[in-house]
C-alpha cells in the first residue's frame, strides 16, 4: 500500500463501470421487454444508473433529484397510465409487424446518429474544470439563468409525455 489514494480510485472506477452497466442494461431491458411495464422498469433501472453517474461526478443533489423526480414521480405516473390502458391479457394482441419494427429501428438509428453527431461536435471538458460548486444555490442559479432554455425544453418533453399518456388511455378504452 504505497499510494493510499490508488485503491480508492480503483473502487470508484468499479462503481463508475457498475453504473454504466446498470444504465445500459436497463436500456436493453426497456427495449426488449414484452410487457410495457417491464419496459418501464428497465427505464427505472437506467435512471438509477444515471443517478449513480451523477453521484460519481460528485453532484449529490442532482442524483437525488433524479431519483425523486424521475423514478418517484414520472415513472410512477407512466405506470399509472399503462395500468389504465393495458392488461396482461392484451399483450398477445399487439404483435410486432415487420414493417413497424423496421421503421422503429430506422427512427432509432437516425436519432442515435444525430446524438452521436452532437457528441462528436461538442468539446468535452471534465466537470471539475468547469465548476467545483455543486451546491443547491449554484445549481438553482444556473438553471434559471444560463440553462433556462434547456430547463424549459425539459418541461416540453414532460408535456409530450402527458399528451401521449392521455392518447394511450383514451385509445385503450375504445373511444
Amino acid at each position: 500500500m504505497a499510494d493510499p489514494v490508488l485503491p480508492y480510485q480503483f473502487v470508484s472506477e468499479i462503481f463508475f463501470c457498475g453504473f454504466v452497466v446498470l444504465a445500459l442494461s436497463g436500456g436493453i431491458i426497456a427495449v426488449s421487454a414484452r410487457y410495457l411495464l417491464h419496459a418501464l422498469l428497465g427505464l427505472v433501472v437506467t435512471l438509477f444508473g444515471v443517478a449513480g453517474l451523477y453521484l460519481y461526478l460528485g453532484s449529490f443533489f442532482i442524483s437525488l433529484m433524479q431519483v425523486l423526480i424521475y423514478v418517484g414521480a414520472i415513472c410512477v405516473t407512466i405506470v399509472f397510465a399503462i395500468m389504465l390502458t393495458e392488461t396482461p391479457d392484451q399483450v398477445k394482441e399487439n404483435h410486432k409487424s415487420g414493417l413497424r419494427s423496421f421503421l422503429a429501428a430506422g427512427a432509432g438509428l437516425a436519432a442515435l446518429s444525430c446524438a452521436f453527431q452532437f457528441i462528436y461536435l461538442t468539446e468535452w471538458q471534465p466537470a471539475l474544470s468547469r465548476t467545483d460548486d455543486f451546491s443547491i444555490i449554484a445549481v438553482g442559479k444556473r438553471l434559471l439563468t444560463e440553462y433556462c432554455l434547456v430547463f424549459e425544453m425539459i418541461s416540453l418533453v414532460l408535456l409530450f409525455a402527458i399528451i401521449g399518456s392521455i392518447i394511450l388511455a383514451r385509445g385503450g378504452r375504445g373511444n
Binding site: 427505472v44 449529490f60 443533489f61 437525488l64 433529484m65 431519483v67 425523486l68 423514478v71 418517484g72 414521480a73 415513472c75 410512477v76 405506470v79 451546491s135 443547491i136
Partner: peptide, 17 residues
C-alpha cells in the same frame, strides 16, 4: 447530509414503486 430531507423524500418516493 447537506440535503438530508431530499435524501429522505427521494427514498420515500420509491415506496410507491
Amino acid at each position: 447530509l447537506d440535503m438530508g430531507i431530499i435524501f429522505i423524500l427521494a427514498l420515500a418516493s420509491l415506496n410507491v414503486l
